[in-house]
Design a protein around this nucleic acid. Structure first.
Lengths: 339, 339
DNA sequence: CACGTTTGTTAATACGCATTAGCGGCGTAA
DNA sequence: TTACGCCGCTAATGCGTATTAACAAACGTG
């Protein structure tokens, strides 16, 4: 029982057992090279001292010397544990934690990342991502500058969510928004919708661009008309004027608000106006409608991101860019187009 | 723009500018001791080289030298990111993260802790808690054996939630259940309740024992009668038979079920039977009642736990056992006792 | 002009670990 | 008996930074 407060080191263990620090290191890492072998009884003595003292290797020193410490970093531009209730990121984290547990890694949350202009930064004084063997990057939008710098520096990382190239291909596990969105467009077309609206930005973060890309191409293919509108106060009027019979909302919460507003104006959903939500709510949204659309496979994305990262670290080859299918939700807000 | 793949180091900067590595370090850390000063023009030269190369200090080496890794461990017996929606632990984590961010520490989640008998263990192969400078322990119940071992080994840690001594005082930040519960009892007594029931275990985890302790002492003080009942199928009959006019539930979710059951039997809440919930739901609970009771200051508890831990690590003195007041919730389930 | 003093910088070292080259000792084959 | 190889272990070194003691040069000061 060491009462001193100092960390126990390999040197301490070595002195206790009358061997060298090297020997302790070798025993600890269970090295079994032909080059370096330790007698069973010596090994046992060392192991006992380790157990007795509760020694664990300093992860920092370990990483400095050997470039690995079995930590997986998680970087988010926003707080990892969001204060909001409508917790969009939570399922990703569940997947990440589950997979990390399965491969025996600890998770390091970079809460110390300095906040500049209201956002956390990867680079400033130092690049703390290096504290871990590899990192998972989470967030709707990742700073392309920081991204390309990570690539240039050869950092091991995987993004949750597809990312455009940034001076090189970015490893990611994303959701296949184009395919999922296109499927919804086809469904609408089959139900007789001839003019449908896309409400949202359709650009900016990859996830938005991807949705819109799927939308436009599917619309063209189905021979119908799609119009894009920003989410503003008057958007409901606009799209009605344009003769749209269905609304595809980029953001679930916006859809909830619009549908409620439509209801107040005496429009029945979906009989008079159909709604399709392109993904889960990223903000708290209250509605009693069962929205048609699709679900983002968040947990699977988190899990697989760790999987890909693990493969990268092991030097195992394999695809470093994965798109996972979204699960369609039948819902009750998409119906035959009004005559 | 160094094209080589190797990281830029202080040594590189030093060679570039014709100074020593020490000088670079000094400039970087903006040290301004009387002992160690750098001429303005030298400083500027170094800074330029740093800007030119985009050099950032290696956090690993930095922390190795500092003998502090600025990791705060977070240990939970259950997964850190619970899959369940009714997420009791979430607010604690929010507080922990916020405070960690404010003091510039990273959070280390012990996802690699082995799960034995369905629970994670602190001690098994090794004590992973030692990987961090200090740790936050989270969970309704902490294994007293593990706890006393932590104390014996001189581990720096703080428990979220009060803990009984375990071979020594346990540092904690807890909720003041006795006071909060007693206040509710007094309120009930003032409303004319003469026999009130406590439904729950009243023992086991400290948080349960504390509630019950507050209950019994307040009941005695108010000169009324309290009966403790386990949460079972027939508990509603039992407490009615015993003439109880108010039910204090240890566990919110149980209260929700009981109240619903009471409703089905034609009892109005609170006119015929009052309910008081002693804390927030630890399990998902569905009810449309606005329960009277109190709220556990979870976020503050998380925050202050980190604060206490930080003080322990810095050797700053200060109280290492804190009880925070719970916030009373007026609610609508406690009314004047039926005649 | 000899002697402190301040100024600017550096050599040396520590931090805790992993790795490599190599060193005695012993057994075995030539 | 020599030569070779194997076994069990260690000394030395490097990872990139922070810190301390010390040193040369310039600068007063009496």
């Amino acid at each position: 029982m060491p009462s001193s407060n100092r960390r126990v080191t390999q040197q301490d263990i070595a002195r206790m057992t009358g061997v060298s620090q090297t020997t302790v290191s070798i025993v600890l890492n269970e090295r079994d090279d032909a080059a370096v072998r330790i007698a069973p009884e010596t090994r046992e003595r060392v192991l006992q001292a380790i157990r007795r003292t509760g020694y664990v290797a300093d992860p920092i020193a370990r990483r400095l010397a050997a470039q690995r410490n079995r930590f997986l970093g998680v970087f988010t531009y926003e707080p990892v544990f969001p204060a909001g209730l409508g917790d969009f990121y939570h399922p990703f984290l569940v997947g990440i934690e589950e997979c990390a547990e399965s491969i025996g890694c600890d998770l390091l949350l970079f809460t110390s990342a300095p906040v500049i202009d209201g956002r956390r930064r990867i680079f400033s004084q130092d690049n703390r991502l290096r504290l871990a063997d590899g990192c998972i990057l989470l967030g709707r939008w990742l700073d392309p500058q920081e991204l390309s710098r990570l690539i240039a520096e050869g950092q091991a990382f995987v993004s949750v969510g597809r990312r455009d190239d940034a001076g090189g291909p970015v490893p990611y596990v994303g959701a296949d928004y184009p395919t999922a969105t296109a499927a919804q467009v086809r469904k609408a077309a089959e139900l007789g919708h001839r003019r449908i609206a896309y409400v949202g930005e359709g650009a900016g973060p990859e996830s938005h661009a991807d949705r819109y890309r799927g939308f436009t191409s599917a619309v063209a293919e189905a021979g119908i008309t799609g119009v894009r509108l920003r989410y503003t106060d008057g958007v409901l009027d606009d799209l009605r004027e344009q003769g749209c019979t269905a609304v595809f909302v980029e953001e679930f919460a916006d859809g909830a608000v619009l549908a409620a507003e439509a209801g107040r104006r005496g429009l029945r959903v979906p009989e008079d106006l159909s709604f399709v939500a392109l993904g889960d709510p990223t903000r708290p949204a209250s509605t009693d409608l069962d929205f048609t659309g699709y679900r983002i496979p968040r947990r699977a994305m988190g899990w697989q991101a760790v999987e890909v990262l693990s493969a990268i670290l092991d030097g195992t080859g394999g695809e470093t860019q994965r798109l996972l299918p979204c699960e369609p939700v039948a819902g009750a807000t998409l119906a035959v187009a009004r005559a």
